[in-house]
Nucleic acid binder design. Structure first.
Lengths: 232, 232
DNA sequence: CGCCAGTTTGACCAAGATCAACGCAAGTGG
DNA sequence: CCACTTGCGTTGATCTTGGTCAAACTGGCG
C-alpha cells in the first residue's frame, strides 16, 4: 500500500531508461555523470554518525552499500526513525539552515558525499534535472504521508506486516529478507516498543506467516496473509 | 518544536522581501505574476471535495480563504488527515500518476486552481523559481517528518499541546485561536479519537492553560505551560 | 567458558479506545 | 413561537492494546 519507501535516488537514472522522468535520453546524462565527479566516498562503521541534528546541511549523500537510519531524539530520550536508506538511495538533501534529523550507519556502510553548492549549480543548469529532483522529493513526501497514516491509524500487527512487505518490495528479495537493523530500530521506525515488535513477529511465526531462522533474517511464507493484515 | 506547519506557498514571495530564497529581487517576479494569470478561482462549500483519491493530478491549488484538509481513508473507514491548509497555502502539487490523498473544504472556502502543465513550463524557464519550489517541498517534507515523530512517539496531551501551539504560530493569532475544523478532524490529524481530544482539551481548561468560550474558539492562557507539555 | 549485547517471553499496568449517555445550539416544520 | 430533530461536543464507565518491568535465552567473542 506504500508506493515505495523513499525515492530511489536521482543517480539511478544512469542505470535506467524510458522511465517517467525520461532523463537519460535528454542530455542531462552528462550532468549526472558530473555528480559522480564532485562526490567523495567514505566508509562508516556500525552506528557511526553521518551527520548530526543541528549541523549545517552543506552536502547530501548516496548510499553505496549498507544501510542508514535518519532519526531524531526527544529531550527525554525517546527516539523516532523517519526513514531507512539502502544501497542506491540518496538522502540528506535538506534546505533549512540546520539539520532537524541526524543520520547514522545501521551497520558498516559506504557512502558518497556530494557538496551542496556545486550540486545546486548543476541543477540550475538543467531544468530536467531540477524536475527529476523535484519529483523525487515529492515521492518522498508522499511516502512520509503514508507513513504518518501508519503511525496514526494502524495497529501493531498492521504496522509490522506493512513494514515487512515494504522492505521486501524495496530490496529485490522475493521472500528472504535480511534485516540490517536491530529490533530497537524497527520499533522506533514503527512507533512501537522492542517488546511489541518481538511479540508480533513471534505471533506471525506461530501462525506460519513468516519464518525467523535468526533474528536478522525473516522469510515471508505467506505474503497474501501479510498483505491482508496490512490492509486492516 | 515544529518548524512550521507546511510551506507558506510560493505565491507569497510576492509579498515578502529579502527572505532566504531571495526571489523577489531577481526577475522571477514576473514569472510569479504569470501564475496568477493561469489560475482560476472557485468557491467550495463545507465538506466539498476539491480532488479525490485516484484523480489524475493535473493541477495544484492555493487557498484564498477558508481551510482545506488533505486526507485518506482506509478500507474500513479509518481516516487520516495528513495536513491542513489555510489562506495563502499551496497544496496538491503532486507528481505520481494519481492522487494518493483527497482534499476537502473544511468550511466554506475559496480556492485558486492552477493547471500543472503550464506551471511546469514556467518553472523550467526559471531556475530560481525551481529552487524556491524545491525548498518549499523540502520544508513540507521536514514538517511531515516532525509530524511522524508526533504520531509515533508523543502522548495525547503532548500532541494536543503541540497542535495548538503550531496553529497559533501559523495563524497570526497571539492567543485567541479559532478552529475551523471539527473535533473529528483534529482527532484524525493527531491520530487520536474525538473523545480523547475532548478530554485533553477539557483537562487543559481545568488547569487554566486554555479557555474554550465555545467549541470552535480556544484561547491560550499559558503558552509556556503548553510548550512544556509539548516537549514531554 | 563466561560475559555481553541483543532478543524473546511472561506478568502486570495504564493510556487511550470503545460504548453509551447526555448536553446543547442550530435548524425545521407545524 | 414552540416542539422536534439533527449534528456535534462533552463526560463517564469499561475494556483492550500495547507499554513497562523483569527474567530467561542466544549467539558471538575475548
Amino acid at each position: 500500500m506504500y508506493v515505495q519507501f523513499t525515492g530511489a535516488g536521482y543517480c539511478d537514472v544512469l542505470d535506467r531508461s524510458g522511465s517517467a522522468g525520461g532523463l537519460a535520453q535528454s542530455g542531462a546524462l552528462d550532468v549526472l555523470v558530473a555528480f559522480e565527479r564532485i562526490g567523495t566516498r567514505r566508509s562508516y562503521a556500525r552506528n557511526d554518525e553521518i551527520f548530526a541534528e543541528g549541523d549545517r546541511p552543506d552536502c547530501w549523500f548516496k548510499v553505496v552499500s549498507g544501510a542508514v537510519r535518519v532519526c531524531k531524539l526527544m529531550a527525554d530520550g525517546r527516539r523516532h526513525i523517519a526513514e531507512f536508506h539502502f544501497a542506491g538511495d540518496c538522502f540528506g538533501f535538506d534546505s533549512l539552515p540546520e539539520r532537524l534529523f541526524s543520520a547514522e550507519a545501521v551497520g558498516d556502510a559506504v557512502i558518497m558525499r556530494f557538496p551542496r553548492r556545486a550540486t545546486e549549480r548543476l541543477i540550475d543548469e538543467s531544468p530536467k534535472l531540477a524536475r527529476y529532483l523535484r519529483e523525487m522529493t515529492l515521492r518522498d513526501l508522499a511516502n512520509a504521508q503514508m507513513h504518518m497514516m501508519m503511525l496514526g491509524r494502524m495497529s501493531a500487527p498492521e504496522r509490522v506486516a506493512t513494514f515487512l512487505l515494504d522492505l521486501a518490495d524495496r530490496r529485490d528479495a522475493s521472500c528472504a529478507l535480511d534485516l540490517p537493523m536491530s529490533r530497537a530500530d524497527i520499533a522506533d521506525y514503527l512507533g512501537l516498543t522492542i517488546e511489541t515488535v518481538c511479540r508480533v513477529l513471534s505471533s506471525f511465526k506461530r501462525d506460519g506467516i513468516i519464518d525467523i531462522p535468526n533474528a536478522h533474517r525473516i522469510e515471508l511464507r505467506n505474503r497474501a496473509a501479510l498483505a491482508e493484515i496490512g490492509e486492516g
